[in-house]
Nucleic acid binder design. Structure first.
Lengths: 205, 205
DNA sequence: AGCTATGTTGTCCTTCAGGCCAATATATTT
DNA sequence: AAATATATTGGCCTGAAGGACAACATAGCT
């Protein structure tokens, strides 16, 4: 397992050396390939004004070492940069001045296939990407007034996505009866099947 | 370091025991607090129909054990459910039938502060987030962003109430292909059938 | 060059939905 | 009393839906 720190600082930072005394620190990727059968970790030291350098370097690493793990160490971490780094293929993003023990943690995590990022970033990723949370039904509208009371109950359950069998169980009647109420509801409402019925009842006019 | 598997299966799964012979397997969270100075990992075995249980259980855990790590093991993993689990506070999401060595990896990763999720999911999270970061114009149905372009088209038609045959005619593909896209969409979104899919896509937050 | 994601299509099979043929009981209205 | 509406259930049948196996092509990334 080898560690390469790529940084404009010739000696790197103290915590890096403390965490990985045997790591190599250079200011650029060496064009001559490192030959090793072990996993490699590249620690890329990132300045705010080196966006392009980061893209190029990561691309270069991925070309030459398909199995290598890439960590981006940022001088001034921010979510946008983190997103960018992760989207380029980095598996970890952290502060360049992280203490040695954190660097060790990061290495452990990524070596085992995990991803390292700040909790707030993960949270934001998820917030942006998901808005699902609850699957509660929303309000149900006026079509229902066209149905008898029993039909209403059945139709409401059907509109939530329940199967006939489930509805039967809930209402303590046979599946056959559920079908009867549903067929009747379809006719009254002009729905061609339960999906249309669900769409009608879940619309909000 | 203690592991608690919460599963409806009294004996859990063989791979769990193989990975953590000393773990405890129960069917519900014990109300009596476990006293330990060590880190705790809760492995929550998730059924598709236990969404609410998951929310409640995670909330309970977080109340009682602020430092505990939570892993969600899904019977049928899907991206939507993974998002949900992670947004609730889980730090890992994987298949319930993951082999023992994978469970070990997961534990290593989360014990050191990492996050474990499928690379597909991470990739998509980042894609969605970074694209939304640039032009946050539309808050389209976020569910759709989990689908590929072709899946989107099929899912949208299905959500209108069209049959597979009708969708096939519209998109000029065979009914079989429509089914394939739909099945894939179900899996990605965690919908159990086209009705659930329709409800998800027709809901507006 | 190999791997992964995507798109396309195949067959077989099981389950479910919904229609069509009923019947019976109860309550309300005419 | 007769008619009507509602609630319940039965069996049978067809077609659609969806899963379980797939296979193959293409494109992009590694």
């Amino acid at each position: 397992m080898q560690d390469f720190f790529i940084s404009p600082l010739p000696a790197g930072l103290a915590s890096w050396v403390e965490a990985f005394p045997k790591a190599k620190i250079t200011d650029a990727i060496n064009t001559t390939k490192i030959k090793t059968d072990n996993a490699i970790v590249f620690w890329l030291h990132m300045n705010a004004d080196r966006q392009e350098w980061l893209s190029n370097t990561i691309a270069l690493i991925q070309q030459s070492y398909t199995q290598a793990k890439i960590v981006v160490l940022a001088n001034s971490p921010n979510q946008a940069e983190a997103l960018h780094a992760l989207s380029l293929g980095a598996v970890a993003y952290s502060h360049a001045y992280s203490p040695a023990h954190v660097l060790g943690e990061i290495k452990t995590v990524i070596s085992h296939g995990g991803v390292w990022m700040g909790q707030d970033l993960l949270k934001r990723l998820i917030e942006v990407s998901s808005s699902l949370a609850g699957n509660q039904a929303q309000q149900i509208n006026s079509h229902l007034s066209l149905l008898t009371s029993r039909e209403k109950q059945v139709a409401i359950e059907a509109a939530k996505g329940l199967s006939n069998k489930e509805i039967a169980r809930i209402l303590a009647i046979t599946e056959r009866t559920v079908k009867a109420h549903l067929s009747s509801s379809f006719e009254r409402l002009g729905a061609k099947d339960r999906l249309h019925l669900a769409l009608m009842l879940n619309k909000k006019p």
